[in-house]
């Protein structure tokens, strides 16, 4: 469904993505993990055509992303920060996206699911952060697109809304959709993800199943596995920086 080949992107002198190759062929939930600044959001935004790659190629459903726009009909995107025109009401915003995008979205069941009914007539500027996030979810997921991209979907949600979101994602997965999620909440990943992509300094450090990741790093939890990856990387970095010292240490050990 989504193919990424040799994707490179720099912002000024900072190289954020250093040749990413990635494929999302099987339906299911893929979590993109990585420390802050590892390039998660840049990767997602490249798929959406918001960030323009320096090199490489991205295809969604066979269509090249570069210069295209119609391919975005196949993607539902939930952005990280939910800010909308403050003077519009929730209802107007839903109508507006429907008007802009066309098609037949089903917002009703999402409004019911997240209890957004009483807020439909309210201006977005007057809503609390959590309610805005709910409106954000309704807007993003009301289309039945084959790909869902969610950037930190859990931020600001209360536990009930969080449960409903998980339930919803499971249902969408059952329908055979490709769901890509970035999050910092490891519990969410352990519970929901089928596959994990771990980004570190612009490279894919690991791609595979949750169990595989834990086994590879000899950890019984995801958190620990990730801590070990980061630790190893740090050690490697130190060894690179002090090559002679490290060699001396190794010799001594021998």
């Amino acid at each position: 469904m989504i193919t990424i080949e040799k994707l490179k992107k720099s912002f000024g002198s900072q190289e954020v993505l250093k040749g990413i190759n990635l494929e999302f062929q099987r339906p299911g939930i893929t979590a993109i993990l990585g420390p802050n600044g590892s390039g998660k959001t840049t990767l997602i935004k490249s798929i959406l055509g918001m960030v323009l790659p320096d090199k490489g190629r991205i295809r969604v459903g066979g269509e090249d992303v570069k210069g295209g726009w119609a391919y975005r009909r196949q993607i539902d995107y939930l952005p990280q920060i939910a800010r909308f025109p403050e003077n519009l009401t929730v209802q107007e915003l839903i109508r507006m996206i429907r008007d802009l995008r066309g098609g037949r979205p089903d917002a009703e069941h999402l409004i019911r699911r997240f209890g957004l009914g009483p807020f439909l007539g309210k201006r977005l500027g007057n809503l609390s952060g959590g309610t805005r996030q709910k409106a954000n979810i309704v807007l993003a997921l009301m289309y039945d697109s084959p790909v869902l991209i969610l950037d930190e979907p859990t931020s600001g949600l209360d536990p009930v809304a969080m449960l409903r979101l998980k339930e919803l994602l499971r249902q969408e997965k059952e329908k055979g959709k490709h769901i890509i999620v970035t999050t910092h909440i490891m519990g969410f990943v352990e519970e929901m993800a089928d596959e994990v992509v771990f980004l570190l300094e612009g490279h894919i450090h690991f791609q595979g199943g949750l169990q595989e990741l834990k086994e590879k790093y000899g950890a019984n939890s995801l958190e620990l596995a990730i801590a070990r990856i980061l630790q190893q990387e740090e050690l490697g970095f130190k060894a690179n920086g002090h090559g002679e010292k490290a060699a001396a240490l190794v010799l001594k050990a021998l």
Partner: peptide, 16 residues
């Protein structure tokens, strides 16, 4: 002021 909202629009199937 509409920067974040513009981002929402950019993710829609609309020409930039």
């Amino acid at each position: 002021n509409s920067r974040e909202f513009t981002e929402l629009l950019l993710a829609q199937p609309i020409r930039r």
